[in-house]
Design a binder for these strands. Structure first.
Lengths: 274, 274
DNA sequence: ATACGGCCTCCAGCAGGGGGAGAGTCAATC
DNA sequence: GATTGACTCTCCCCCTGCTGGAGGCCGTAT
């Protein structure tokens, strides 16, 4: 016979836990002194305690454990319980993986943005951009509506997105309400090319080349200043600019927050006709 | 302005949850009627609610969310939170995987035993067993102490175990207290062979061959009957039996329960000298 | 006698809500 | 103006698997 303290040391379960198990009818001490209420545990209780520990380590609920203990004494008999438990664990695993990959995505995105910020000079640069496969939705109207286009692409290509969203501007002048633009996102090469689908999304190769580029920090409605700056540079250098021009959203509204517009980062890219 | 019911439909959070969030200071309605206590939510609350949904879907605690909302409005600022969360998720993932693999092991073991039961004739068979790499601990004394040997091997080779535990009997006669036997478990071929280590475990190849075998169902102390049966058969057939003989524990005490001895399955294998 | 440690019961609290009782409110209709 | 029916309010209990603490009894060593 063990007192509850001794039994606690033997089984590794805390005294509190033992009292709780008693109350729950999971592990009843073999003797309870009627006078004092003291609990005394026998050897056979040690075995039960071990079984309970095992089952708890497999994360069975106390209700399940109570049932299992009351009816069975062999693993063969609880196969159903084990398999139910396994399915639940699989499910949990799936959830965790999902959360993990979401977190990874968000973190990766933020880190890229941070790196871009660090290397940023906010001066016009000349560089070259590679060709890439993109999915795009051509739209006419207000720039503010581009979100619908991106949502459309996101819905359709979800996992196959492999780069930052950008906008192609087909207008040669600034238009407020009747702009002609295309919301685009680079996609993996495993996606099939094709004409414009019913959904309005076209998948095609976008060619690269030399370009002038300028990183813009701040809200979108201040992009004008950066456009002026880059256009002035291009004129000064005698570059002939191709249409459409690009606006790459390095850091825009996030997946969690709408984001602080002052921290938005956008790169304007203008390909040079050679 | 939305009433709590309307806001619930807009945000997809239940009324109960909204009240709870209010109480917790996570999402405070922009107007609370002093007279009636009615909560009214503004547009800005919708955005906050979305953020909360996102963060909850990443399984952030309400305490974290409250802090995040009170201090930040951009994902860049909560990178630390995200990374802490990610680590916690990784940890959870590890736990789940551990539990899952334990469950798999137990289930697989039980299913094998069940299959063995189904095909069992409980008659002496002739068959052949393959060679295998084993880890063994030679012991002298009582059979009942073999558990220590198995525990030793289990501790040392854990993940590399690839078959059922068995005992090699080096005695030609039955001995109670001073038996000479070896607790063995097959291990993966990736394990290095070697002499007897300090721990007493020896890793070596055990050769196979033709044998007579008999499945025994029931407690170990009734093995004698099955031994008698198989020996009689061997004598009848004029087989010359090799020492040591083997006792393979198809189903013994389990990982959870000590198990019901009446359901134990043990195969006696005796190699034939040719 | 007294001090100390072990044990008892009962209550509260964690997280993130769900369920329900009983009472007050709102808006529309009769 | 009154009534109805749909909403909403607060308050309390419940879930899981314990943990912590208060206040009081028990046993023994000194």
């Amino acid at each position: 016979m063990f007192s509850i303290g001794e039994f606690s040391k033997v089984t590794g379960l805390t005294v509190k836990t033992l009292r709780f198990y008693h109350e729950q009818g999971v592990l009843t001490p073999s003797v309870v002194d009627q006078q004092t209420g003291y609990r005394y545990y026998a050897q056979s209780n040690v075995e039960t305690a071990c079984v309970i520990r095992q089952l708890r380590s497999l994360d069975f609920s106390l209700a399940d454990i109570r049932q299992i203990l009351s009816s069975y004494d062999d693993e063969a008999d609880i196969l159903e319980y084990l398999e139910r438990r396994k399915e639940a664990v699989q499910e949990k695993l799936r959830e965790c993986r999902e959360i993990g990959s979401s977190l990874d995505q968000i973190i990766a995105k933020e880190k890229e943005a941070r790196a871009a910020m660090k290397n940023a000079t906010f001066e016009v640069e000349e560089k070259s951009v590679g060709a890439m496969l993109i999915a795009g939705v051509r739209m006419k109207g207000r720039y503010g509506d581009c979100g619908q286009g991106f949502a459309q692409i996101g819905k359709q290509f979800g996992r196959n997105i492999c780069g930052k969203a950008f906008l192609l501007h087909y207008d040669n002048e600034y238009k407020e309400d009747d702009a002609d633009f295309e919301a685009c996102i680079p996609v993996r090469s495993s996606v099939e090319k094709g004409g414009i689908e019913k959904s309005g999304v076209s998948v095609r190769e976008l060619s690269g080349g030399r370009c002038v580029a300028l990183l813009h920090k701040g809200p979108y409605d201040e992009l004008g200043r950066s456009y002026a700056k880059i256009m002035a540079y291009a004129k000064e250098q005698g570059f002939n600019i191709e249409t459409p021009t690009r606006e790459v959203y390095i850091k825009g509204p996030g997946m969690i927050f709408k984001g602080n517009p002052k921290k938005h980062l956008t790169e304007i890219q203008m390909l040079i006709k050679e």
